[in-house]
Design a protein around this nucleic acid. Sequence first.
RNA 1: GGAGAGGUGGCAGAGUGGUCGAAUGUACCUGACUCGAAAUCAGGCGUAGGUUUAAGCCUACCGUGGGUUCGAAUCCCACCCUCUCCGCCA
Length: 455
Amino acid sequence: MLDIQALRNDLAGVAARLATRGFVLDTAKFEQLEGERKSIQTRTQELQAKRNSSSKLIGQAKAKGQDVSAIMAEVASLGDELKRDEARLGEVQSALQQFLEVLPNTPHSSVPPGKSEADNLEVRKIGNIPTFDFAVKDHVSIGEGLGLDFDTAAKISGSRFSVLKGGLARLHRALAQFMLDTHTDQHGYTETYVPYIVNADSMRGTGQLPKFEEDLFRIAQPFERRITERFLSNEGISAADMASGGLNPANYKEDSYYLIPTAEVPVTNMVRDEIVPLEQLPLKFVAHTPCFRSEAGSYGRDTRGMIRQHQFDKVELVQMVHPDESYAALEQLLGHAETILQKLGLPYRVVKLCTGDMGFSSATTYDIEVWLPAQNTYREISSCSNFEAFQARRMQARFRNAQGKPELLHTLNGSGLAVGRTLVAVLENYQQADGSVVIPEVLRPYMGGMEKLSH
RNA sequence: GGAGAGGUGGCAGAGUGGUCGAAUGUACCUGACUCGAAAUCAGGCGUAGGUUUAAGCCUACCGUGGGUUCGAAUCCCACCCUCUCCGCCA
């Protein structure tokens, strides 16, 4: 979320910065809402102050045994007006909140302007692209004899799922283990195990809600179930149920559970509503979790293979840092992710996303793209972002600064790496003419010393 | 799933519906005493919002959301969470 103060002080400036990423800020609407908020809040608070002081007088007078009917009558007339104003204030404030919640982050000044992927900036290319003296196969063909099975996955679940067996399943596990060990032993991250199902507040905190619900898997939970039970038992929902909120269908989304689309959500939300002592910064966490994405809107894209799945594993790096440190931390975090590719001997390039290609919550994003021989191109395998205070403001995630005052943290995260896509990259880059796949040196300790996967 | 207890400031822990944003203790900060420290004494010490050049003033917040009332931490309703016992269970 953007700082409402920034919009109040420099609306045109914020609008201009958002325009660079192709977002049109409705400045008229903001000014209208903010204007109304100001007048109604002032008026409401005046009435509240009046009510409070009068009520105090009543208390004092009663204590002395004096007659209070005169003051009572006076205050009673306040009631209706105050109630109306309070209700209106609540409406305006939630409208403002809703307005703010769907505004994307403003790009950092160093982000290259641009409209699409085509305008991204290549930062560096690392590693040599392998050459093959035979016809290269894609990971689907390579995996066929090695235990990669999409048909069985389709039977069990549907499209965009995969089943791994034997050495391939072990290689998948080896990759995750190797990444975790590297980040904990060499990069100073604390390993965490977190829930894969989170509540709506957490999704809102990192920015998936309210705008991107269609990308998530939502689990129908208590409300919907209770409502269904009530109707099945012919009890129905009474007006009292609605008023109490306990069975108000309008609230069901607030009570919903969601499958995490990335470990970023549970891990970053660990600091939601917390004030972290200064000396504990920076916080650095790594988590290996499955990720679940509906992939709504990507019909027809990457339908072959395990590039784009509803479920995939990822090792995620998350940092919460002092605002002065966040850009240095981003470079470090990016380096930590790159280390994995270097150790695996996979060629890759680093791309700095342009203003128009960045995610909703990000102020700066680097993508790491790994070389896939069969596609003869680089494909995204990691995305490393600095969110500055955007997520922290939504989460009220703060630290106590040197002056002893709470201040918003900066949050960062990056894949280190997407395990499924790394598996694809290993299969394709290490394939042999006979259909076998050489196992990268660093993974062999995790593979019981195995050097090769073959039929 | 059944029965019970409870959610108050960093922590602990009070709080007959009326100067309660909240006693007290503890932690922390400042000062005094001390060569220094401990102990002791004095003062300070929540978050957010509004308004103001500022000092300040005002408003909201005692798990969450509603309700009753001139007035709610306190009464009523619903929900969430924690703990204890029983049952079931990886």
